[in-house]
């Protein structure tokens, strides 16, 4: 990074530290914070979408759709997260490769040969020849899907409960005005359910933030991986030898997670306050009275 970093063994004190903290691996460590934030930014809306779909399916008048919604929410919520994170990416990856094997390979060699799962070179996903970033994005996509499926199931239950909590009288009034079921749902049900759903969703968001270290299970190098890797004792095989510093690295990670939760609390408080305005709930009523005085 800096010009004086070419020979770290002669450096000491602040110069050594400034070189040490700007090595390539440290840059990857800093970038991994971005990876975690990116995962959160992509996963949260997709999980919410899954949840909305699940909740709508659970409320559906069409029986098979309703069964699907119920099975999805209860089954996924009942399986330990870690099992799902191990299962979904492997199943997806092997399933896709098997499909591509059927379509793209002209050999009829079996996919399973003893212990091995082998598809032809053209069916590999991603191809062995693809650059590293393609592999990274592929792994990240599988991770996003696994996270979304799991958190979507929880969100579905929260949203389902919130939809049930909207007073029936509100919906009946809308029907009396001659609105179609679709209009009732879009104009009355959905806008009002958020105020009931938000406490549950904010819980989920917090749990999602804390679940991101599971990324490492999927082969993505997240902040916890790098903290462990960089903090471990380094011998003179490395340019910057140091004793076991994991404590400090994990401390930095801890501060990051606490900051994330602190910021989220602020934002969610504000959103809850805004959504309560004009609602026939205690919080909404309190706001109305405060404004009237």
């Amino acid at each position: 990074m800096f010009s004086f970093c070419s020979d770290p063994s002669v450096l000491d004190g602040l110069a050594w530290l400034s070189c040490y903290l700007t090595t390539g691996t440290h840059m990857l460590f800093y970038a991994s914070f971005g990876v975690v934030l990116l995962l959160l930014a992509i996963t949260a809306p997709i999980a919410l979408l899954f949840g909305y779909g699940g909740a709508m399916a659970s409320r559906s008048r069409i029986a098979p759709l309703r069964w699907f919604g119920k099975v999805y929410t209860s089954m996924v919520r009942g399986v330990p997260d870690i099992v799902f994170f191990l299962f979904v990416p492997i199943a997806l990856d092997q399933g896709l490769e098997w499909l591509r094997h059927q379509a793209l390979c002209d050999s009829d060699a079996p996919v399973r040969q003893g212990n091995d799962f082998v598809v032809c070179a053209a069916a590999k996903l991603p191809l062995s020849t693809s650059p590293e970033w393609v592999h990274d994005i592929y792994a990240m996509t599988l991770a996003v899907i696994a996270f979304s499926v799991v958190f979507g199931a929880f969100a579905a239950n929260v949203l389902y409960g919130a939809m049930q909590a909207v007073p029936r009288a509100q919906l009946e009034t809308a029907e009396a005005y001659g609105m179609t079921p679709r209009q009732v749902s879009r104009r009355i049900l959905v806008p009002q359910m958020w105020t009931y759903a938000l406490p549950g969703l904010s819980n989920l968001w917090m749990i999602l933030i804390k679940a991101t270290p599971l990324l490492f299970l999927l082969g993505i190098e997240d902040i916890v991986y790098w903290a462990r890797e960089l903090g471990g004792a380094k011998t003179s095989s490395f340019a910057y030898p140091h004793p076991d510093w994991r404590l400090y690295y994990f401390l930095a990670v801890l501060v990051f997670y606490l900051l994330m939760t602190w910021v989220s609390e602020r934002v969610l408080d504000r959103v809850i306050r805004r959504l309560s305005a004009g609602q026939a709930t205690m919080a909404g009523e309190a706001q109305r009275k405060a404004g009237a005085l």
């Binding site: 390539g24 691996t25 840059m27 095989s237």
Partner: peptide, 17 residues
């Protein structure tokens, strides 16, 4: 990538050893 001197991750973030 965590077993020096056989294999480890060097300062540039690459596999070395």
């Amino acid at each position: 990538g965590a077993y020096p001197p056989y294999n480890f991750i060097n300062e540039a973030g690459e596999v070395a050893g």
